[in-house]
């Protein structure tokens, strides 16, 4: 098999861990893997109780996201499966991906956050609906603050008095996560945390 990013041959190591499926195979080579830079920040926020981000938004990460989301290379959904699994190896918390607007999802042909969770075999609940197609990056701070909530709870879903963990690909201004956390808390969630693959500079 070749590295999904640079196409060089992956060193195959048919070790006993692999045979017993204890260790998960990597989809990318060591060079590509090393090019991503860990940041591992945990931050607190007034609405989102804790935000954990795993990587910085460096050039290789920008390229990864471009190929995955804009070139629609769904195969890349599993590149960070091991890292996401490690980060989310918690007991009872409920994982909730940040959704795409249904129209956008059809255009892209897949919802990238859900695909990442599926590839990592992490169970999740699809609780939120994105109400409009606005793109956060195109807004000023004032516009972002004045916006009505981007999300609503899916009709018929049951939000419990528990901890929910929101998942998104990238954390930039935090507006998206705050909106999602607000609707979850209003619906009865006790605590809302978030894990994002990437932390961008503001």
């Amino acid at each position: 098999m070749n590295c999904l990013l640079c196409e060089q041959k992956l060193a195959s190591s048919p070790s006993w861990q692999l045979l017993l499926a204890i260790e998960n195979t990597s989809l990318i080579c060591e060079d590509c893997s090393k090019s991503f830079e860990r940041v591992d920040i945990k931050e607190e926020d007034d609405v989102v109780d804790q935000v954990t981000s795993i990587y910085t938004y460096n050039e290789p990460m920008r390229e990864y996201l471009h190929q995955f989301k804009f070139l629609q290379d769904v195969a890349l959904a599993g590149v960070f499966a091991n890292e996401l699994r490690t980060e989310l190896a918690r007991k009872d918390d409920i994982i909730v991906p940040i959704p795409m607007h249904p129209q956008k999802k059809i255009e892209r042909t897949f919802a990238h956050v859900e695909e990442m969770l599926t590839a990592a075999r992490i169970p999740f609940e699809d609780l939120l609906i994105k109400k409009n197609t606005e793109v956060m990056g195109e807004k000023t701070r004032e516009e972002r603050l004045a916006m009505r909530n981007l999300f609503s709870i899916k009709p018929g879903s049951d939000v419990k008095n528990k901890t929910y963990i929101l998942i998104d690909d990238i954390y930039t201004t935090g507006t998206t996560l705050r909106h999602a956390a607000t609707v979850l808390k209003e619906a009865g969630a006790e605590r809302v945390e978030a894990v994002t693959l990437i932390r961008a500079e503001r």
Binding site: L71, D73, K105, I106, E107, R108, F110
Partner: peptide
């Protein structure tokens, strides 16, 4: 080739990774 569940054609959909960079 990679096959995935496509939201546009609502079923299994296969795409070519060989020429991906010219538009999937």
């Amino acid at each position: 080739f990679t096959t995935f569940n496509c939201a546009k054609c609502e079923g299994p959909c296969t795409y070519c990774r060989q020429c991906l960079k010219m538009g999937r």
